[in-house]
Amino acid sequence: MARDPAFHPPKSPFVEAMAIFLGNRAAMAGLIILAVVILASLIGPSLYGVDPKATVNAPFLPPMEDVASPMGTDYIGRDVLAGILSGGPATIMIGTSAALVAVLIGITLGALAGYYGGLIDTILMRFTEFFQVLPALLFAMVLMTLFTPSLRVTIIGIGLVMWPPTARLARAEFMKLRNMDYVRAERAMGARDRRIIWRVILPNAMPPLIAAAALVVGVSILFEAGLSFLGLGDPNIRSWGEMIGSNRDYIFDCPWAVFFPGIAIFLTVLGVSLVGDGLNDAMNPRFRER
């Protein structure tokens, strides 16, 4: 029997995806931004050594006026740079945890709706639509006023308003993939639904979902900022959103106390979405050809 010659060197899809990702300039820029943000959050506070919660200087001190507070101080004299450096972990934590909540709910419901179709799909999609037409901010505000604002309530609240788009995306992917021949082949081999959904289809549906999840992280950070701006965040946690929120009444007296956290949020969201886009491209088999 003739054996086909010519073998390409073994390369896993993961290794190939990494190679493409590393060769993507925008994604690398995003990665560098994120690395800087994370590094600053991790070692910045100890290097800088100023207590972000204490009044350390005169209030309303503009940036560069006093070398001790290069980004100025806010309305009660807290150091803005110290707030930025120490607010990173909380902000990123809220963003990623909320995104995780949203993505878990979204993928679960979307997968079931897309795989089974029919009545299950109709019911789950009605449910999703209900959440989608709810004004997100209003819904979150109700949640935050019903429960005492805390880190956990904030995360769950944001997660609860963020999941419908992920569910729709997951559903569309599952509807497409459930008709692939390799899924049919699994059924022909006697695989149970549970295996087909979680072990066969889900891994193949991941590329767009990961990219979408990166976007959800970004949007969650923005959302948290919005909640804080409205005074609905947990006042005990110094996140960037909280910095903006607590200074909102003095926005014309010390704009820098709002501006710098805003820039920090912008850069982080930009970094996350660039990395997300890059991941999507790298994991999309279409870009792998040639």
Binding site: P13, M180, D181, Y182, R184, A185, E186, A188, M189, G190, V200, P203, N204, P285
Partner: peptide, 20 residues
């Protein structure tokens, strides 16, 4: 339980094997 007794080969050699 009967499925080991009958199997299928598909047309499209690209979509019939799980890429992962």
């Amino acid at each position: 339980r009967q499925r080991h007794r009958f199997q299928i080969i598909f047309q499209d050699p690209y979509s019939s094997l799980n890429p992962r």
